[in-house]
């Protein structure tokens, strides 16, 4: 398959993307290896309560005498993998729905698109909150709620890409050569959809992390005593004076979301040169 050969031209490498990739990689490594070097048990309550950051407890302790630094590191094991998983699921589901909708058209298209309209009729956090609340508070239910609100964007984008590609001359040429609809979809249309969908998914990882931690902040996501960033921040509502309980988990969320946004935005430059800060100075 000559078409799919990978090469990395120089202008693909942007400082923003590299910084984002480095931070994201660091968090993924932490998520995998944290148990090896946690200074304290993230769930143990043996330490003095509400202690300010110091040498033994780098980020202080919370109201139950737990080490905030250890909870922060082990929090990466909760939010990051769940967010990656849920984005993968919504991407897969949304892309299939969109491809089916765009390719078959007619009532299939009409029905599926009205379904996306319905989901998009609500602001995302509101719908996710309503769904998570009715399913019952748990991290997995919050993830299901996040999938329900995020798949339509993939379906919409895939559908519009399929629709515009279907009438391209090279796709018609393929069909005239005797390609079946499936063959045409996979070998002619799919390669041109991958890029934009990947950009959307990368940016969506950040959104998913914000949504998951937001639901946990509302008490609808990860349940105590799980060390999860959003619920750690909501615990700090009761202890305003102990700023360290909430500030550090917030910085964790901020850096990891920022990292994926940096990567996604740089990917957009690569896959869609017209929308970007193109160095050639030629715009669409």
């Amino acid at each position: 398959m000559r078409r799919l050969r990978l090469r990395i031209p120089k202008h693909w490498v942007s400082p923003l993307g590299v910084i984002g990739a480095a931070i994201a990689l660091a968090w993924v490594v932490i998520a995998f290896t944290a148990p090896l070097y946690l200074p304290h048990d993230p769930l143990a309550q043996g330490l003095p309560r509400l202690q300010a950051p110091g040498i033994d407890t780098l980020m202080g302790t919370d109201a139950l005498g737990r080490d905030v630094f250890s909870r922060l590191l082990s929090g990466a094991r909760v939010t990051v993998p769940v967010a990656l998983l849920l984005v993968a699921v919504s991407m897969l589901f949304g892309t299939i729905v969109g491809a089916v909708s765009g390719f078959f058209g007619k009532w299939v298209d009409e029905g599926l698109m009205r379904l996306t309209d319905l989901v998009m009729a609500f602001p995302t956090v509101i719908l996710a909150m309503v769904v998570a609340a009715s399913l019952g508070p748990s991290l997995w239910n919050a993830a299901i709620a996040a999938i329900i609100v995020s798949w339509p964007q993939y379906a919409r984008m895939t559908r519009s890409l399929v629709l515009s590609l279907r009438t391209q001359n090279y796709v018609i040429a393929g069909r005239l050569l005797g390609y079946s609809p499936a063959k045409s979809l996979i070998s002619d249309i799919a390669p041109n959809i991958v890029g934009p969908i990947l950009v959307l998914a990368t940016l969506d990882i950040g959104t998913a992390i914000l949504l998951l931690s937001g639901l946990s902040f509302l008490g609808l996501g990860a349940q105590p005593p799980t060390a999860e960033w959003g619920s750690m921040i909501s615990a700090s509502l009761q202890n305003f004076d102990s700023w360290w309980i909430g500030v550090f988990p917030g910085l964790a969320i901020l850096t990891v979301v920022m990292a994926f946004n940096f990567i996604g935005d740089s990917l957009r430059d690569i896959f869609d040169p017209t929308s970007a800060l193109s160095k050639t100075g030629v715009s669409s």
Binding site: G230, I233, L254
Partner: peptide, 12 residues
């Protein structure tokens, strides 16, 4: 701006 968890920013 798009990456800030708003509930954390509110507290801060």
């Amino acid at each position: 701006g798009l990456s800030i968890p708003t509930f954390w920013m509110a507290l801060t």
